[in-house]
Design a protein around this nucleic acid. Sequence first.
DNA 1: AAGTGGTCTAGACCACGTT
DNA 2: ACGTGGTCTAGACCACTTA
Lengths: 253, 253
Amino acid sequence: MYRLADVITESCEALQRSSPVPLYYQLKEIFRSWIIAGRFNSGERFPSESALQKHFQVSRMTIRRALTELVNEGFLIRERGRGSFVVRPRVQSQLRRLTSFTEDMQLRGLRADSKFLDFCCVRDAEAARKMGVAEDEELVQIRRLRLVEGEPVALQNAYVRHALCPGIVEKGLIEGSLYKTIEDGYGLKLGRALQTVEAKPADEYEAGLLGIGVGQPVLILERLTYLANGEPVEYVRSSFRGDRYRFVIELVR
Amino acid sequence: MYRLADVITESCEALQRSSPVPLYYQLKEIFRSWIIAGRFNSGERFPSESALQKHFQVSRMTIRRALTELVNEGFLIRERGRGSFVVRPRVQSQLRRLTSFTEDMQLRGLRADSKFLDFCCVRDAEAARKMGVAEDEELVQIRRLRLVEGEPVALQNAYVRHALCPGIVEKGLIEGSLYKTIEDGYGLKLGRALQTVEAKPADEYEAGLLGIGVGQPVLILERLTYLANGEPVEYVRSSFRGDRYRFVIELVR
DNA sequence: AAGTGGTCTAGACCACGTT
DNA sequence: ACGTGGTCTAGACCACTTA
């Protein structure tokens, strides 16, 4: 037997109608907190739209917007005629998110360092071709050895279009993060990236810097990053130690 | 100078109000076709909501729903006070989609084959632990060598919970596809998967079946698949030839 | 000031599943 | 018959950008 009233009235959350935060967003966060706090078992019925509408005194469309976003984020599923159901053993989100190495390690609570090998303006026909820009366009090359907890983990070779972040070589990176610099330093909005992953034997250069034997497997990540408006901004090729790095992603059907 | 009327009136699409297909969906497909057909350059203004509303004679919310879904799919961006803008050099979608090996290869127009090595009921404590089910639960083990255009590319070792697809060993797979069998044969709805990728040297077993040297790099993909209701359904561990397979994903900021 | 997208309302009818 | 979610309408006010 399921009693909506019990679930809802246990909550002490209240909507702030004068807040600049939209109502649907406040509701979404309230619902999300219910689910994360374990107020429901997985597969259990979520309160119906009309029950929520009555309780929060908002229009049905506002409730629906909150619920729809939670469906898109994988916290709920809805079935016509039956109701909304909680999906609890939630696969962590953030796994499809475009993150920098720095952000990645911060999320896992690890200390990340960089050793700069190169930071200069260049013209590189191959990188330009991958980005789909003119072959003689000026690019900023940033070659770094990435360390986690003091151990070398990856070798990164990034190319950024100089036209989008002029003077970056002189100003340097904000907090050592290229993405933070692009976003906060130049006010650009990162959008999507296309990334390929493959496995290869390490060559002498990689082996030497990563401290592994020649021929040991390395993960090659190639990433082409676009701004929100669709312009290409960055091309990176990274070599990760196969024995120190594992790549996790979430897939949706 | 931008003239909305030109863009819109060039279209001969019409809404079918009696169709069971929702209006917002018809609109979405029309807008998507405009963008894919190249009616706009990348970054160009898309017609405003009010212009579209007048032209199609539907309410603004219906227009907005169509536009919102295109924004989520990366075809448009919207800026308050400025308008909606087309993002054309569209990174292919489908790259975050949960697909089977068979579907994957079909999408690329390649011929995929399988050589069954195992197809039987087992109990496997490690696989059960990964799925988070009782260690003595009955699982169906499917071990296959995957071939593309006649060449061995991957070794897959999948475990499916027998309780969710009873009799699968006797009935066999539909069109050689495990996911098709799960969905069409048993009416289950696949949801999400969590996948890890790493690089390792091939052991003798892998090397022998894949036709590569021992110690050559292989990509190890581990996938834990859930149904739409959150229940775990499958655990697969695959070894892909490093020199024949490259993994592509799309990341969003 | 005008135009844009962002949010919100209070209704409506429908298709579907359960009782 | 009833309750559920799915779609749709015709308004409203707001914040923001651009002219």
